[in-house]
Design a protein around this nucleic acid. Structure first.
Length: 470
RNA sequence: GGCGACGUACCCAAGUGGUUAAGGGGGAGGUCUGCAAAACCUCUAUUCACCGGUUCGAAUCCGGUCGUCGCCUCCA
């Protein structure tokens, strides 16, 4: 059992060895809270969540940090446009993000540092960069990182800084930098913009410095894993490496991991192109959060993924299938003796599941192993060849795998007493062969998000709410 | 122009040198069933964008062609 991960830094798959045995420290670039995050953003967050869950499932102790960027150009722009204080805007969208993340069953990171609460950490880093000549001040009070002082710049993105095409997107600066490619670590004060009085002068932090300061603050100068979308490789992560390593003289991150983009209509989902969809939009169309989660994590993280009704429908059906077998296993009662082949069947699935995820989180074959087991369990349920305990252990086994996947019905929610009595009534109606009443109750329960199946062992129910609209 | 990812069935997607090309969805037929649903069974790619090459053997390796997507200082 060795986990191998693709490291953007080396471009290769490497055996993952944590710096400290048994313990993993990872950082994920989180949201900028000026609008609700779209499902493309969530692909990257849920990819990090999948990794975090898998590491934990393997028995490693994980410290996961995800930042919240609560000061930046767009936040300032939108707050001004809406005439609301910045803190109010960011508080609103931070809450929205946390709610979306929770519904999508994203593991709560151990620390979610806010940029505005870590200005001193950033300033300390900037002071070091200034003192060592890796950064310089300009007339307006800004501080820039001096690219010329960092020869290995461009390693992560495999980009030659001298080849950058100045003029197209590399703009002649408005802060008066020495070299157009230098990037800002501290922005001098401007009218109408938030500003902090600090040892490097008044102003506000640049975007990149925030991740360097906050990740090192909670994870140390060198840590194991840093994740984000491929669009962050350059310049964001490249700049993080430069400023962090220039300041500490040590390697910043050992393994960089990046997930491919979510696409819609064959193009990257992005606010600038307008082809975005938010979790709320998806739910409004009748898909549940578990189906959305499945759609976002069901393909390999490094492959571009087309998002839309096709993928959501397919995901809904897949999650439904999992719910079904769990409901059937939970409801199963039999005096049959224990099926002696069960332990082997479960162990085999576990091995295939682990082997697949060990291979750079290759989730498709891991899911294939799960669904093969689902078919096998359904067969045995139909044949009645399981004991009650066998069914229980199979359900517990699947739910254990779900500590990684996070898409199944955990079966731990108490049923509303109202619904419970409707179920009882229906069972009674069926016993009396009163089909009209039983069918009416089935429809009524369906309206309340409960699906019913009648089996030889009586009626069985499952909840649809988290998967699809009733 | 530079760099990178990729092209497998109706859709999504594994497989990266050797038995029948995983799995999910969809479709067709069947079994079970008061009806429904679910489940199960059978079928749904002699073929892996295309053209060459290496090899006893290629979806997998090499070369070329075509096509798609991304990054190249707002970006998950």
């Amino acid at each position: 059992m060795t986990l191998r991960l693709t490291n953007t830094l080396t471009g290769r798959q490497e055996t993952f060895v944590p710096l400290e045995p048994g313990r993993v420290r990872m950082y994920s670039c989180g949201p900028t809270v000026y609008a609700p995050a779209h499902v493309g953003n969530f692909r990257s967050f849920l990819f990090a969540d999948l990794l975090r869950r898998y590491l934990g499932w393997l028995g490693l102790e994980v410290t996961w940090v995800m930042n919240i960027t609560d000061v930046d150009d767009k936040i300032i722009r939108d707050a001004r446009r809406d005439g609301v204080p910045i803190a109010e805007l960011t508080a609103r969208y931070t809450a929205a993000f946390l709610e979306d993340a929770e519904r999508l069953r994203m593991t709560r990171p151990d620390v979610m540092p806010r940029a505005t609460e870590h200005i001193p950490d950033m300033v300390a880093l900037i002071e070091t960069l200034l003192a060592t000549g890796h950064a310089y001040r300009t007339d307006d009070g800004s501080v820039f990182f001096r690219l010329a002082s960092w020869p290995s710049y461009g390693q992560l993105a495999r980009l030659d800084p001298t080849q950058q095409r100045v003029g197209e997107r590399v703009e002649a600066d408005d802060y008066g930098k020495d070299d157009v490619r230098d990037f800002v670590v501290w922005k001098g004060p401007k009218d109408g913009e938030p500003s902090w009085e600090t040892a490097v002068g008044p102003g506000r932090p640049g975007w990149h410095i925030e991740c360097s300061a906050m990740s090192m603050r909670y994870l140390g100068t060198t840590f194991d894993i840093h994740t984000g979308g491929v669009d962050l490789i350059f310049p964001h992560h490249e700049d993080e490496i430069a400023q962090s390593e220039a300041a500490t003289g040590r390697q910043f991150v050992r393994t960089w991991m990046h997930c491919a983009h979510l696409q819609m209509g064959g193009q990257k989902m992005a606010k600038r192109t307008g082809n975005i969809e938010r979790p709320a939009d998806v739910y409004a169309r009748g898909y549940g959060p578990r189906a959305l989660r499945y759609a976002l994590i069901g393909a390999h993280y490094r492959a571009p993924l087309e998002f839309g009704d096709d993928s959501l429908r397919s995901a809904t059906a897949a999650v439904d299938r999992l719910d079904n077998v769990l409901a059937a296993l939970d409801a199963y009662r039999s005096d049959a003796p224990s099926d002696t082949t069960m332990p082997t069947a479960l162990a085999e699935t576990r091995e295939r599941f682990t082997e697949a995820l060990d291979d750079d989180l290759n989730i498709a074959p891991a899911l294939a192993a799960v669904f093969d087991l689902v078919r096998e369990m359904n067969r045995r349920l139909d044949a009645g060849s399981l004991s009650t305990e066998d069914a229980g252990s199979a359900a517990a086994f699947l739910r254990d795998l779900d500590r990684v996947l996070g898409v199944m019905d955990q079966g731990d929610e108490a049923l509303d007493p109202d619904l419970a009595s409707m179920l009882e009534e229906r069972a009674a109606a069926r016993a009396a062969r009163d089909w009209a009443t039983s069918d009416r109750l089935r429809d009524a329960l369906a309206d309340r998000g409960i699906a019913i199946e009648d089996t030889k062992m009586g009626q069985r129910w499952r909840r649809l709410a988290e998967v699809r609209r009733a």
